[in-house]
Amino acid sequence: MLIDGMALLFRAFYATAVTGQFMFNSKGVPTNGVHGFVKHMLSAVAGFGPTHVAVCWDMGSKTFRNEMFPLYKANRQEAPLELIPQFSLAKEVVSAFDIPNVGLEGFEADDCIGTIAKNAPKDVRISILTGDKDILQLIDEQVSVILLQKGYGNYFVHDRHTLFGEKGIWPEQMIDLKALMGDPSDNYPGVRGIGEKTAVKLLQQYSSVEGIIENLDNLTKGQKTKIEQDLEMLHLSRRLAEIKCDVPVECHLDHAFFQLDREKVSAKFDEIGLKGLHKMLPANPILA
Rank of each mutant, 00 (worst) to 15 (best):
S95R: 09
A96R: 12
F97N: 04
F97K: 10
D98F: 06
I99H: 12
P100Q: 09
P100D: 10
P100R: 14
N101I: 08
V102R: 07
L104C: 05
L104S: 08
E105I: 06
E105G: 15
F107C: 12
E108Q: 00
E108R: 04
A109E: 01
D110V: 02
D111L: 05
G114Y: 04
G114D: 08
T115V: 03
I116N: 10
I116P: 09
K118V: 00
N119C: 11
P121I: 13
P121Y: 15
I126H: 13
I128A: 02
I128K: 05
L129V: 02
T130R: 01
G131N: 08
L138I: 06
E141K: 15
E141C: 10
V143L: 12
V145M: 02
V145I: 13
V145P: 02
V145N: 02
V145S: 03
L147M: 12
L148F: 10
Q149K: 14
K150A: 11
K150G: 08
G153D: 03
F156S: 08
V157Q: 07
V157L: 12
H158Y: 15
R160F: 09
H161V: 10
H161L: 15
L163A: 14
F164K: 07
G168F: 01
I169P: 04
W170L: 10
D176R: 07
L177Y: 10
L177K: 08
L180R: 00
L180K: 01
M181F: 00
D183H: 01
S185Q: 08
S185T: 15
N187M: 07
Y188T: 00
Y188F: 11
G190V: 00
V191A: 09
G195I: 10
G195Q: 10
E196C: 11
T198V: 15
K201F: 00
L202S: 04
L203T: 06
